[in-house]
């Protein structure tokens, strides 16, 4: 399989590449969401424990 064939996917490029792109996109999105969720929760816990100290 040469490089050109790889790019064009035997004429199916318009379908194969978007399919893989969507998958990677969603995976990346999920990954970022999970990270952000974690960060948000850590901030929230810190806020609560700070409140306690002030009290």
């Amino acid at each position: 399989m040469n490089l050109h064939e790889f790019y064009t996917m035997g004429g199916y490029a318009a379908y194969v590449w978007p399919a893989f792109a969507v998958v990677l996109g969603i995976f990346g999105g999920q990954w970022i969401l999970a990270k952000r969720h974690r960060r948000k929760i850590i901030l929230k816990i810190k806020e609560v424990s700070c409140d306690k100290i002030i009290k």
Partner: peptide, 29 residues
Amino acid sequence: LFYLILLCQRLCADILYQERKAAWVQEIL
């Protein structure tokens, strides 16, 4: 595996929040 990884990520965060008053969580923070 990707499902498991996501699950673990979120589970960790939620466990931390649930146990936010415990000493070990404060240590980790």
